[in-house]
Amino acid sequence: MELVERLRAASERTQSALGAQLTLPAVEWDVPWRAAEMISTLTHACIDRLRRTPDSAVVEANQLCDLILGLQQLAMDWYLHDTAMRGQRLADCAAGLSRLRGLPSTTSLVENACEELVLRCGFHRAVLSKVESRSWKPLILHDRGDSTEASWFSEWINQRVPLSATAPEAEMLSRRRPSLVYDTANAPVYRPLIVAAGQSRSYVVAPLVLGDDVIGFLHTDHHPLPRRVDEADRDVLWAFADGFSHIYERATLVERLRTQRDSVRELFFGAVDKIDQLCESGAESARGYEDTSAESGCGATRPVELTDREAEVLDLMVTGATNQAIADQLVITEGTVKSHVKHILRKYGAVNRAQAIAWALRDR
């Protein structure tokens, strides 16, 4: 606010000293991101007048020199302020990416990306979209304002938005660089969504890259504030989109590795179970095991010999565990559990699980 007031005063003082109404860049005083351009215009106007000032006009020349020095000091202060603010936003961006890096899946990454952009990176709204062929589909919106303000977005979720050749989004498919749209009224944007529904006056969009492909977009703006986006917004969004792309790619690879690990584990334990079954079948043949249940009609009359794995399965059966629960507990397949249950029933001469459990408890 102090810099804004100094800029106002410098502009009035310079134009008064020059006795002319200068054509200055349009500055929105809530966030005067074109302040540097205005200071440069005022400075060059003073320098031009100083060159045309006669040597005898010492007072006027001194006044112009004072104005030029004051404008240069103001330009330096604006630069330091902008640099500090940009550095702080980039630090907050890094903190947001660090939190996302700890999420467990790609799904949770997608669900939290827009929230981090809004809460940490200084934007008011953020939208994540996915790219499909020559179109993009909005997926998630996070709005800092009232949730009712985001009701318009529900009608556009997963709706196909065409990528015209002149659209800022289409340009990113080849350039893979963010685009800054300062005024949507004069830009070739998709107006039904961005202007009519979203009411965006100005926005920044950055690509999400996976490998060699652009898989999505991040759109951000400051709606409903009158503030327009600027180069700092573009740089912050670019840093976030680039970091998010790397995190998402890493999470995708980790998920694939986990899937392959589970498949290998399933094959390994399945092979071990098969070997156990073959060994058990050989042991039973060697002992010449005979089923006595048909003769007695009331279950086994002598202690039943179970393998270690069958004993583990039976212990869990007694607790009432299902085949799937037993498989999870013993880290084997459900089919292997069924095979063990079948062997247990046969050894006890039982017709169902309940009968086998009853006779097992009796023996104990």
Rank of each mutant, 00 (worst) to 15 (best):
S245M: 03
A325T: 13
S296M: 11
Q324T: 15
T252G: 13
I326W: 02
P303V: 03
A300K: 01
G270D: 13
E305Y: 08
I326S: 01
E284G: 00
E249C: 06
L316S: 10
H246Y: 15
Q277C: 07
S293E: 01
G297K: 04
T259V: 13
R250E: 11
Q324I: 13
E295Q: 02
R256Y: 05
V313C: 09
S245N: 07
E290T: 07
A241Q: 01
G288M: 08
T292V: 06
A300M: 09
C279T: 13
E290W: 08
D315I: 00
E305S: 07
T322W: 00
E284V: 13
V331P: 00
P303Q: 05
E312T: 07
F244V: 07
I326Y: 04
E310W: 12
A311K: 13
D308W: 08
D328T: 02
E255V: 04
V264R: 12
S293P: 02
T322N: 00
L306P: 05
T322D: 07
L267R: 15
T322R: 01
L314M: 14
A311Y: 08
D262W: 07
Q324A: 15
G270A: 04
A251N: 12
D315Q: 10
G282A: 15
V272G: 03
T319I: 09
D328V: 05
E295V: 04
D242V: 02
V272P: 04
C279N: 09
E312I: 03
A294G: 09
I326C: 02
L253T: 10
S281L: 11
D291E: 04
L267S: 14
V254N: 12
S285Q: 14
V331L: 12
M317A: 08
T307S: 14
A300F: 01
Q324Y: 13
R302C: 06
S296K: 11
V318I: 08
G270Q: 06
E290H: 14
A300N: 05
G282W: 07
V331Q: 13
A327E: 01
A311I: 05
D276P: 01
L267E: 15
G299S: 02
L278W: 14
E305L: 11
V313D: 07
D328Q: 05
Q324V: 15
C279W: 14
L306Y: 14
S293G: 08
A327P: 07
A271Y: 12
C279L: 15
R302Y: 09
S296G: 14
E255I: 03
E310D: 05
R256P: 01
D308S: 08
L278Y: 13
G299K: 10
R261E: 15
C298R: 06
Y289Q: 10
T333G: 15
D315C: 04
I247P: 02
C279P: 00
A311R: 12
L330E: 04
L267P: 03
S285I: 11
V264G: 03
L257R: 13
D242A: 10
T307Q: 04
G243D: 04
A311L: 09
F244T: 08
D276S: 10
A241D: 00
I247L: 09
L278I: 13
T292A: 09
Q324R: 14
A251D: 05
V304S: 07
V331K: 13
S245Y: 00
F244Y: 12
D315A: 05
D242H: 02
E295F: 08
I326H: 05
L267V: 10
V254M: 12
T307H: 08
F269E: 11
V254W: 12
Q277E: 15
T319G: 05
Y289G: 01
A300V: 06
R287D: 10
R258S: 09
A300H: 00
T322C: 03
